[in-house]
Design a protein around this nucleic acid. Structure first.
Lengths: 152, 152
DNA sequence: GCCATTCATTGGTCATGCCAACGAGTACAC
DNA sequence: GTGTACTCGTTGGCATGACCAATGAATGGC
């Protein structure tokens, strides 16, 4: 993000899509930096979180829960299997599937990333009070829910 | 975005950074599709908007106003110069610089993109009332301003 | 006159979100 | 049962956005 001193065009400053993108870019930079320091990236966190909350699952299920394309799940799991954060085992009941399991190391890794994310969150939302944060969360939830429902 | 029926992990559903990213992804998809149909992409719109609001400028200035890296400004201007939306002329007063000017075709193109963006905006914010949209804009503005100021 | 800085440009990198196609496997209809 | 439609993992590709480093030309401050 290169903002410097110059003011942005007015039409951009008031466009919600621009603001959301700007906020997302800030957020993304903070998260990516924090995760990179821990040797991870966004996809890893999402997959680990889905694994801890729902237990072992197939790659396709993981992708659906973490909102990641099947093909990208493969790559992320390869990376995480190298660090022994997850285990891939064939599903005896359905030989198309792999069952992915979180290892203890993976759980520790996830909790580390949880801490990173909490710190980033605080930094990102620094200018907002607690009620304002809640309001923002609520508005954004309405938007994402609306668009998630309206998509196959 | 692959959301389908599956619920996302709770820690994601309540994290502001996740929500912002989700909203940004929706917004980005809508905007990119709309712009692509008009033969443009985000960088083009930002540069055209900066040009119309502030008049002819050097590429470096454009980059600062549109928050785009200098090197990416080059590529985007190349693409737009092909469509004759902008003109590159050397600055006689400073021979390092190019002066970029919006052509009439560029202005028409910009206004077309304005209409596209307005439509997308409406779709994106569909679930929110007018006061809610204003509130969201205000909160996001506070966040982006905060982080823009805190960066060199 | 020198030195730091700015400018446009080239040429990379990375993450994210997609899509298409493949072979293997499964499920359902008939 | 057989065939058709679907699912799964995987490979490989693409576009966008946001960066970074380095280079040569030009400028400006000192």
């Amino acid at each position: 993000m290169i903002t410097d001193d110059a003011r942005q065009p007015e039409r951009l400053r008031h466009a919600a899509s621009w603001l959301i993108n700007q906020a997302s870019a800030h957020s993304h930079r903070l998260v990516a930096d924090g995760f990179a320091a821990a040797g991870a990236r966004g996809y890893h966190y999402r997959l680990l979180a889905a694994l801890e909350e729902y237990g072992p699952a197939s790659q396709a299920d993981l992708g659906r829960r973490a909102a990641i394309d099947r093909s990208d799940v493969v790559a992320a799991l390869n990376e995480m299997a190298e660090g022994e954060f997850v285990e891939r085992a064939p599903d005896p009941a359905d030989r198309r599937r792999n069952i992915i399991t979180l290892t203890p190391a993976g759980r520790r890794h996830l909790h580390e990333l949880d801490r990173v994310l909490a710190g980033v969150q605080d930094e990102l939302l620094a200018p907002l009070s607690a009620p304002e944060r809640a309001r923002l969360t609520e508005l954004l939830t309405r938007i994402t829910d609306h668009h998630a429902r309206s998509r196959p």
